[in-house]
Structure formats: C-alpha cells, structure tokens
Amino acid sequence: MSSMQFGIFTVGDVTHNPVDGVTISEHERIKNTVEIAKKAEEVGLDVFATGEHHNPPFVPSSPTTTLAYIGAQTEKIILSTSTTLITTNDPVKLAEDYATLQHLVDGRMDLMLGRGNTAPVYPWFGYDGSKAVELTIEHYQLLRRLWEEDVVTWEGKFRTPLQSFTATPRPLDGVAPFVWHGSIRTPEVAELAAYYGDGYFANNIFWPKEHYIRLINFYRQRYAHYGHGEPQQAVVGLGGQFFMRKNSQDAVKEFRPYFDVAPVYGHGPSLEEFSAQTPLTVGSPQQFIEKTLTFADFFGDYQRQLFLVDHAGLPQKVVLEQLDLLGEVLPTLRAEFDARRPADVPDAPTHAARVAARDAANATEGAEQVSA
C-alpha cells in the first residue's frame, strides 16, 4: 500500500435524478452502495467510507451493519465512516459496535467521528443540540477509556454512570480502532484530535481552502504541543470531489444538471464558481490529477484523500464509470504524491502498522527495564 491512502466516501443520499426523472428506492440505494464499495476495491482504492444519517433523504443510519456486509465481500479495502455521530450515539454502543466490526474484518477498519450537520437529530436520541461540543468531548473521552481500559468506572454529565464496566469484545490485538475526527468549522474538535494524537479529517468540499488551512494548521500546532511529533507529522485527511470524462467539455455538460440540484452544494454558486473555490474538478483526467496535486501545497503533506463520487442523483452506471476513471489515474496520483513526500512524514495509519508500533514500543521499554 502506498504511504498515502486514496478512497471514496458516500453520504448515502437518495436524490431525484434531474436528467431522467427517476428517484431510486432506498433498497436500490443501499444495494448500490455495496456495489460501489466493491468496485472501489476492484479499481485499487484503499478506503471506502460511509456517512451516518438518521433522516430522509439519506439511507446510512447503520454504518457498522453496512460495513460488515461489505467487509464479507471484500479482501483488502479499509472500511471507515465519513461520520460516526459521537454526539447522539451512546459511547458504550460505539465501543462495542466498532470493536465487533474490527474483529469481523481483521482490523481493516477505522472510523471518523463527527457531530454531523443535522440539528434535529439530537432530540430524536434524547440529547440537547446546544450541548454538541460538550457531548463530543465527554462521549469521546469515555469511548477512549472503554477501548483502552478493561474495567471502567466512570461518571459524567450526559449518561448514567458506569461501575466496573467492561465493553465487549475487547479491541482486536489489544489495539483500538484508529480514530479520525471530522470537522469543517470547530476548533474544539481539532484540539481533541491533537490531544489524543488522532487523525484530523477536514472535509474541505464546501468552502474556500483558506478556511481549512487555518483549521489544519491549528491542529498541526496542537498535535506538536501535546508531544506527538512535529507539526508536519500530524495525521491529516482531506475530502474532494470530481466528475471526469476524457474530454473536459463533455464532463461539464454532463455534470451540470446534477450539480445544480445536488443536496450537498446545489442551488448556490455556479459550477464554475464552485470549482474555482473548492476541490471540485469537473473535467479531464489530467485536470483532475493537476488539481488534486495542489492540495498538499495548501494543506501540507497528508495521509488520506477521500472523494465524493456517488451523489446528486447520478445513475449507478455513471458512478461506476467514474470509479474506473479514478482507477486509471490512481497510479499517477500515488507516484506523484509519494515522490514529493518528505521522509519524516508518517504513512497513513493501518491496524497492522499500529500493532507493530505498539509491540516495538513494548520491546524497547522491556529492554530498558532489563538494562536498568
């Protein structure tokens, strides 16, 4: 695997196709998601991630179920989330669900925690949305303890206390799943990621790069402050989106009607304005490669690049064609990113690498105790 991970993420929207007038069923959307994940592995991608939503028109309300099903039909691809709601999910259930997934797929998973962007979700699960940041911090601190400590006694503000509680199953190989913290606006989330030495995922698909440069630089500085390494060694992930055809004019013509109504960014700036301001590339494979390579110029060297491909009512056939095109440019992207990557920038985290690092640290510690 390359030192950088490339993959796709889905928000799982069921969107009316503005071109042929068809709206697929929830059943079709869920099954299509599985097909997309399998295709992602087939074309050589490293990661497939799904969001978590509890409201129409989105279908991924149960990420671990979906990812486990995909895991049974794939061999290499890392399965992740493009948001697991740390705010409205019970940390005990998160600890159990994701550790179970970790065992089922032999460690090829991680997760991205976030607050989501749907305010009404809080009361549905018995929480107060005005306490979102407090919930994020308390729930995550408990989740970490449940994975890292065999027996937990805990008391907090938002859930019932725990007395000598053991979350089961225990994490695979005694190493908890790697956690990314996804954020588009909240410094407190960047601070949390930095404190624990976790990954920070800036889903930079909405706004101009300057906004995200500030957040990522803040995270890098705080990561170093907490003693995890130099700022450039912090673990960063980015979002992105594209629509490619061999001929750039064909790409623009075909994608425009979908862009104009997309739930993620439709009804706002024009396609041209949005492409100029954000990572969106609508054009030829060469244009896509050139623009994607600029991301490291803005944000520094980073570890994970996820693209949004299947949304806005795009037909499944077109989404699979997009993945084929992504697969074709992938070797070039890998080679270019690897060639420019300084030696002191860490590789993207994997379960095997983290187990090896833990074992090496334990061996060093043991040798020091013997010599002392």
Rank of each mutant, 00 (worst) to 15 (best):
M1Y: 14
S2W: 09
F9H: 06
V11W: 10
V14N: 08
T23H: 03
S25L: 05
N32G: 12
A40Q: 00
F48G: 10
G51V: 05
H54E: 09
P56G: 05
A68C: 15
T74C: 10
K76A: 14
T87Q: 09
D90K: 04
Y98D: 03
G114T: 04
G116W: 06
N117I: 10
G129A: 15
V133Q: 12
V133M: 04
H139K: 07
L142E: 03
E149L: 03
T153K: 11
P169S: 07
W180P: 05
W180D: 14
G182D: 00
E188H: 15
V189F: 01
V189D: 04
N204Y: 12
W207R: 07
K209S: 14
R214I: 11
L215S: 07
Q221C: 00
Q221E: 04
R222T: 02
G240P: 09
F259T: 00
P263K: 06
S270T: 15
E273A: 11
S275Y: 03
S275R: 11
T278D: 06
T278C: 10
P279H: 01
L280F: 08
P285S: 02
L293D: 06
A296V: 13
F298I: 03
L306V: 07
F307E: 05
L323M: 15
T332V: 14
R334P: 06
A335R: 06
E336Q: 09
R354W: 02
N362V: 04
A363T: 11
T364M: 13
